[in-house]
Nucleic acid binder design. Structure first.
Length: 612
RNA sequence: GGUUCCGUAGCUCAGCUGGAUAGAGCAACUGCCUUCUAAGCAGUAGGUCCUGCGUUCGAAUCGCAGCGGAAUCACCA
């Protein structure tokens, strides 16, 4: 098979990474010299701090007690043994309990030579026959357009999927559209009541924005009704329940679940508007899915599960007819699964979709990219799945990400402080255009090329700004900083890529091809070595980023690499270098940096330009 | 009130399973374009890693307590 051949070929050209050799050699030496059994993977190996000589450092403190040596003596003995055993170790030195190894330049040169033309450097080939990892993200409600919070979700979901795939997983991206429930009834009711038949065509509004407008409209009139009722002396809680609009919305939901044709038709029409709008936003963001689920198709399965749970005796029905799960033994409360009128709630649907998805994919992991405000929900979901007897409950993983806050506090849809996804992207594109105009480096490009470039840079800035932050943490979205193109930003990395591409292009014109072989050994400058070592870290960075579900680790890596390259580029001649061997090596280095930037940015869902 | 998460430079963030003198970017200030893209590079300045106690050769990292902030605990999703 094609992929297998490709893989074998790659394996042949790859060199064995030196970290494992060092760890193994240390473990071997500990055993041989002191009779100690140490698993190689547990040997603490870290990059040597730049103020000391060396490339890798082994911390020997953990072994001094058992070896009955002073840290210095132990480190020296280990250093001598490892230098003897590992050909790539040129030298070692000891400072306190730290054993620093110097790796011979020939290793770094061999590494660059081996990888410089591997277009997939840093990306493992996905295994198509492996049981899949299903990543659910986006999961929009069809009652309002996407906003900044959704943007973080979508970018994270896409990027984590790409990250896991880059680490060899067979990833399936899925979306679960929350197309039913009380919220969409509110929009429908408001549209019937106040809409005068307005459509996306008649108003020129994007469909999701139009429906969102009526959701806001509902809330406005609902508030008024509550106010009127409380003014007459009614308790506020009671007023919220008895407000005519709310009562009517609930009746509408009931009619929807009963399959009432009139309601279903209206629902189909308005959801259709929303989907058209979402598709446009997804396309602009550059995200997509292998499969889309609709809750309207899956919630009944949830209801069946609830019945099964009742039969099994793990759920119970209260006098009013509502169905609950008792989680007090797990330290939680009772959880509602069916309302007294028999309609289902969020949890009911999620039980159903989880089962459906498990059956559809036979997945090894079911990952849900959902905000940390729902930590409790997923804790409960896993517990109930377990109580229902599904042994795959522990394959459910909630990738819980932090909230996006604005400089003036939280986004509140009712207070109009929501940052709309479409608006934000449009503004970023305008900014990108202004920046490019100011620099005036692309005046010869066609209008289509320019438009593509502006979009690429706008999305690069936005995506990088959001993805560089640890997903689990809340983050501040400062609009002024998000459109910055300098420093730790997407465009900085894109710019670095464009610069390198310019060199590689000119090298080709001069007949220097990164695929050519070096005809003589070379010595590296400090700046070169720094870049090479950074490149060398890419595979392990992707692996640990994937293990942590953290695109941020990839983003920060890409920035470090770009910075390291720019520093090298600033004061090292490349094409101006007279020595042809050095010139060729540096072109190889450039080519590999460009590839690495491209591949890491690809994981983030960011494209890199060849010119900017 | 219960539970969970967070607290690192003026601001935004790195700092992975404990390791050497805690790092970037932004903002401020200095330099560097006749030379491969200055959207860049080099430098200066900026710290009680919230506080206290503990664990140990070693703590921003682990534990406990306190202070401050956030989320959640709905017949909303």
């Amino acid at each position: 098979m094609y992929f297998c051949n490709l893989n074998l070929h790659q394996e042949n050209t790859k060199i064995v990474m030196i970290e494992q050799n060092l760890q193994q050699a240390v473990a071997d030496a500990l055993k041989r010299l002191y009779g100690m059994e140490v698993a190689p993977a547990t040997v603490v190996l870290q990059a040597t701090k730049k103020e000391f000589a060396g490339d890798y450092t082994v911390v020997v403190f953990p072994y001094v007690k058992q070896a009955r040596k002073s840290p210095e003596q132990l480190a020296n003995e280990l250093g001598a043994a490892v230098k003897e055993a590992v050909a790539e170790v040129a030298d070692y030195n000891v400072i306190k309990g730290f054993l620093n190894f110097v790796v011979d330049d020939s290793y770094w040169v061999r590494f660059v030579t081996a990888e410089a033309t591997d277009a997939n450097y840093g990306l493992k080939q996905a295994q198509p026959d492996e049981s899949p990892v299903v990543v659910e993200y986006s999961s929009p409600n069809t009652n309002k357009p996407l906003h900044l919070g959704h943007i973080r979700n979508n970018l994270l979901g896409w990027s984590v999927s790409e990250l896991l795939a880059a680490n060899g997983a067979n990833v399936k991206k899925v979306n679960l559209v929350n197309d039913r429930g009380i919220h969409i009834c509110k929009s429908m009711l408001a549209w019937l009541r106040f809409g005068n038949g307005e459509t996306p065509e008649s108003s020129g509004m994007k469909g999701d924005h139009l429906v969102g407008k009526y959701y806001v409209e509902f809330d406005k009139h609902y508030k008024e009704e509550i106010h009127e009722l409380t003014a007459k002396g009614m308790d506020e809680e009671e007023a919220k329940k008895q407000a005519p609009l709310m009562v009517e919305a609930q009746q509408m939901l009931k009619r929807w679940e009963e399959g009432d044709k009139e309601i279903r038709d209206l629902w189909s029409k308005m959801n259709g508007w929303v989907y058209a709008g979402f598709d446009e936003t997804y396309r602009k963001m550059g995200v997509g899915f292998d499969k889309v689920y609709y809750e309207s198709n899956t919630y009944l399965l949830g209801k069946e599960l609830v019945q099964k749970g009742l039969d099994m005796g793990v759920l119970f029905r209260k006098e009013d007819g509502s169905v609950w799960c008792d989680l007090t033994a797990d330290g939680l409360d009772q959880k509602l699964l069916l309302r007294k009128d028999g309609t289902s709630v969020y949890m009911t649907q999620d039980l159903g979709t989880a089962l459906l998805r498990h059956n559809d994919f036979g997945a090894e992991r079911l990952i849900y990219v959902v905000g940390n405000e729902q930590d409790y929900h997923f804790k409960v979901l896993k517990l109930i799945l377990g109580k229902l007897g599904f042994d795959w409950a522990d394959k459910v993983y909630h990738l819980s990400y932090g909230m996006v806050e604005l400089p003036n506090g939280k986004m509140k849809s009712r207070e109009g402080t929501v940052v709309d996804a479409d608006d934000l992207i449009a503004e970023m594109e305008v900014t990108a255009e202004e920046m490019c105009r100011d620099h005036g480096k692309n005046d010869d490009m066609s209008p289509e090329q320019l438009k593509e470039l502006y979009h690429m840079l706008a999305l690069g800035a936005l995506k990088y700004f959001i993805l560089k932050v640890d997903p689990t943490k809340n983050m501040l979205f400062n609009p002024a900083e998000s459109i910055d193109f300098n420093g730790n930003t997407g465009p900085f990395i894109q710019y670095t890529h464009a610069r390198i591409h310019s060199i590689v292009r000119k090298a080709a014109e001069q007949g220097v091809d990164p695929a050519q072989e070096l005809s003589a050994p070379i010595e590296l400058t400090d700046k070169e070595r720094a870049v090479v070592k950074c490149l060398h870290d890419l595979p392990s960075t992707v692996a640990s980023a994937a293990a942590n579900y953290s695109p941020a680790m990839v983003a920060n890596y890409a920035f470090d690499l770009a910075k390291s390259f720019n520093s090298f580029y600033q004061d090292t001649p490349i094409l101006r270098e007279n020595d042809p061997v050095l010139r060729l090596f540096r072109v190889k280095l450039c080519a590999l940096v460009a590839l690495s930037l491209k591949n890491t940015m690809h994981i983030l869902g960011i494209e890199v330009p060849e010119r900017m």
